[in-house]
């Protein structure tokens, strides 16, 4: 929408525009306050030296970049599994005719709200039996399990919007559903795939529960987990406390980058996974 027409009408008058600007700016300042407080603490005692020392002498012996890397590796497993499950399932629910389809679909999305903490006990057992403690698979799989209902919903919504005629021609031509799926549906679904991909990475980056419970090796620490790990590794010195604050600032960096470069995908990913028709 341009500023002239559409919602621009709302602040057509100069006075309204001023008020809107002031209100937005004030809210934004309020939102920046926690960030400012974190930065302020991060610069205490040693100033920028806090940040520098995190690289030469990392807290708890875990370099920050390593925690990013671990989050990314978990994110790869997470994304791969979610895509591998959601794409064919979305296709099936959206484009195949079979008995009990609607029931099965709604049964699938019943699991949208399952909290990780509620299945912590059994997944602990499963992860242990599979020998997956301290592996990226061990973190990525439970993350994926919790995301799959959302992924299926997103892909089904997408498949719903792909015209039947587009696929029908191929099916009638004698191409199997697998060919239709891989040659036609998957390429068409690329926007949805990209969206889901970004969302999975974002959630891996945010995941605190599984790494905290399933990782015992410091070198497996993820970015979200590090918030607690670093804190537990603190000694009594004021220097360490400031260094911890500095590490918090650094741990927020990937989110800033994600917003700067991936805002578009997140917006469309969220909205296409919404429960709507």
């Amino acid at each position: 929408m341009s500023a002239r027409g559409g919602f621009g009408l709302l602040i057509r008058r100069r006075r309204d525009r001023r008020i809107a600007q002031v209100m937005l700016a004030a809210t934004a300042l309020l939102w920046l306050f926690p960030a400012w407080s974190a930065l302020r603490e991060a610069l205490k005692v040693d100033g920028l030296g806090n940040f520098v020392s995190l690289f030469s002498n990392p807290l708890g012996g875990i370099p920050i970049w390593r925690t990013y890397l671990n989050s990314v590796l978990n994110g790869i497993v997470h994304t791969a599994v979610v895509l591998g499950v959601s794409l064919p399932a979305g296709y099936a629910f959206g484009k195949l005719r079979f008995r009990g389809r609607e029931t099965l679909f709604y049964a699938t999305i019943l699991f949208l709200a399952i909290p990780g903490t509620a299945i912590l006990v059994p997944l602990y057992h499963v992860t242990q039996e599979l020998g997956l403690f301290n592996t990226h698979l061990g973190i990525g799989l439970p993350e994926a399990a919790l995301t799959v209902p959302f992924g299926v919903l997103l892909m089904r919504n997408y498949a719903d919007n792909v015209p039947d005629t587009l696929l029908e021609a191929a099916v009638v031509d004698g191409a199997g559903h697998l060919q239709t799926f891989t040659r036609i549906f998957v390429p068409i679904a690329r926007p949805a795939i990209v969206n889901l991909f970004v969302m999975c990475f974002m959630w891996s980056l945010q995941d605190f529960l599984w790494p905290t419970v399933f990782n015992t090796h410091p070198e497996m620490t993820t970015a979200a987990q590090a918030v607690a790990t670093f804190h537990n590794a603190l000694s009594a010195s004021p220097v360490d406390s400031a260094r911890y604050s500095a590490s918090l600032v650094l741990l927020a960096l990937p989110a800033v980058l994600l917003v700067v470069f991936g805002q578009r995908f997140i917006t469309s990913g969220l909205t296409s996974g919404a429960i709507k028709d």
Partner: peptide, 21 residues
Amino acid sequence: NTEVAAADFKAKVPLALKGGE
């Protein structure tokens, strides 16, 4: 020496032992 954070110790050690570490 693997020094586990005191707060995590009770949860992590049974896990490691069960995992055959």
